[in-house]
């Protein structure tokens, strides 16, 4: 279990909390069940004919919505843990990311099976001619290596640095998914996608800001003469790979 290094200053008056083994397991089980709720509700609605007169289209929109929602939540973990000091949150990130992939797969499967009816000609047509469909497919393909290397074993096998470099492509996944969403709606229906875009801008903007802040000379620990040393409000935590088996 990771031990927090001694802090110079508590950024936010929340006591750093580290759930015990049992507590963490309980949190994960509850989170797992919560993440499944949209899928269960959609499946029930589909079987009960409660998705309206065009259930396949409704399913496609809803599954896309949940894919991006889980992706955004996954991307919120790092800012949240840095801003609140609740570093244990990172231990939920893998599950959230895998749920984004899960909903993305359902979104794709619904398109392939229910919408296209596995009609090879129609599928090839869309995936070769229409950038909107190609973009969605590319987004899902980019998620595959991330999902495939989400295990502790994969982290160990790749090594932390390479694993981290690979998993930075989640930013590309988010941006491509966002463009796919924006592209998929008519101009009049842009409101919800634009809210997603604004949230993504915040999530990515935070990282840019955080990076810029850390790479100032002060952040590197070499304060220029005369200037007061800038103490980061949040200490960067070496907790990224703490799930590696001991």
């Amino acid at each position: 279990m990771h031990q927090s290094p001694p802090r110079r200053s508590a950024p936010i008056p929340l006591p750093p909390y580290t759930p015990g083994r049992g507590m963490l397991a309980t949190i994960k089980i509850v989170l797992f069940a919560v993440c499944l709720i949209p899928a269960v509700r959609l499946a029930t609605a589909l079987l009960g004919d409660n998705l309206g007169p065009n259930p396949i289209e409704e399913l496609q929109k809803d599954l896309g919505f949940w894919t991006l929602t889980f992706l955004w939540i996954t991307l919120a973990v790092t800012p949240l843990r840095q801003l609140t000091g609740q570093h244990w949150l990172v231990r939920l990130r893998r599950m959230l990311g895998l749920f984004a992939f899960f909903y993305g797969c359902l979104h794709f499967a619904n398109w392939l099976g229910l919408d296209m009816g596995f009609d090879g000609e129609l599928i090839v047509d869309d995936l070769t001619k229409r950038p909107f469909a190609i973009l969605g497919f590319a987004t899902l393909l980019l998620m595959v290596p991330l999902a495939a290397t989400s295990s502790n074993r994969a982290i160990k096998w790749l090594g932390g640095k390479r694993w981290q470099a690979l998993h930075r492509s989640v930013y590309a996944v988010a941006i491509l998914g966002m463009v796919h969403y924006l592209w998929g709606v008519k101009k009049i229906a842009l409101t919800t996608p634009l809210i997603f875009a604004a949230l993504l801008a915040v999530l990515l903007g935070y990282r840019a800001w955080d990076r810029a802040r850390r790479f100032t000379p002060a952040g590197r620990g070499e304060p220029p003469g005369g200037m007061p040393r800038v103490v980061p409000t949040v200490t960067v935590q070496p907790v990224r790979f703490m799930e590696r088996p001991k």
Partner: peptide, 14 residues
């Protein structure tokens, strides 16, 4: 530009 018009889904049909 974003999708094919070769086929359609009649409401009520799979």
């Amino acid at each position: 530009p974003r999708w094919s018009q070769k086929t359609e889904r009649r409401l009520g049909e799979w």
